[in-house]
């Protein structure tokens, strides 16, 4: 464990909790892509199946359980409890265009051709693009609530911090995982445009709105 990984994990946790609280407090999931949230629930489920097969640490297990639990709670709030506020018309990204190629890639490029390993690889690839329906929704409506941008910032920072963690681990432990690194780079690049808007607009107290 190093400082980048820990802050990355905490940033991830903050993102998840910010989103849950936003929906819960406002009793509304307006502006939130349910499709992205379903993809994240799939990501956690596929990746953390090792909860059933191996124990790493109390920290590891509890974070995994919290991530999975919160992901499903978010999906429940969007599609059941506050369904009336869900903006399905603007959440029109075709997720099969992500899931199918990513599934194929996971079968083709993985470390070991075994079910658990392929599911793990699938989750790494899928996570890198799972935010696209959300970003697509924002580009379609041209705006995002400030709290939603805080969520996206924390979520984007999490993988960015993991990139530093992998540099650290390479230098100090001689350890690297090409699948995670390449997917992590893709994931971070997808947030760059958003990071720019967040710093130049949201941090200066303006609402995030895109030119028409």
């Amino acid at each position: 464990m190093n400082i980048f990984r820990l802050t990355g994990d905490l940033s991830h946790l903050a993102a998840i909790i910010i989103l849950l609280l936003k929906i819960w407090k406002s009793r509304s999931c307006a502006g939130i892509s349910g499709k992205s949230q379903i993809l994240f629930a799939i990501v956690f489920t596929a990746r953390y199946l090792d909860l059933l097969t191996s124990f790493i640490s109390v920290y590891n297990t509890s974070m995994k359980v919290i991530y999975i639990g919160c992901a499903y709670a978010t999906v429940y709030l969007i599609y059941a409890k506050f369904r009336a506020t869900y903006d399905g018309n603007h959440d029109s990204f075709r997720v099969e265009f992500l899931v199918v190629p990513v599934g194929g890639l996971a079968v083709l490029i993985n470390h070991t051709f075994s079910p658990l390993e392929i599911l793990w690889t699938f989750s790494i690839y899928l996570e890198s693009v799972a935010i696209l329906p959300q970003l697509f929704m924002i580009s379609k409506t041209g705006e995002a609530e400030t709290i939603t941008t805080h969520y996206l910032f924390c979520l984007g920072m999490y993988r960015t911090l993991y990139l530093f963690n992998w540099v650290w681990r390479f230098y100090f432990e001689g350890f690297f995982d090409m699948i995670a690194i390449v997917a992590g780079l893709v994931q971070t690049v997808l947030y760059c445009d958003f990071f720019y808007l967040y710093v130049t607009k949201v941090l200066k107290g303006k609402k995030l709105s895109l030119p028409a």
Binding site: R5, H12, D50, S54, I56, K64, T112, E173, F175, A180
Partner: peptide, 10 residues
């Protein structure tokens, strides 16, 4: 072993 090492990440 390399594999087990990575899986400690979230």
């Amino acid at each position: 072993e390399e594999e087990a090492k990575l899986k400690d990440e979230l």
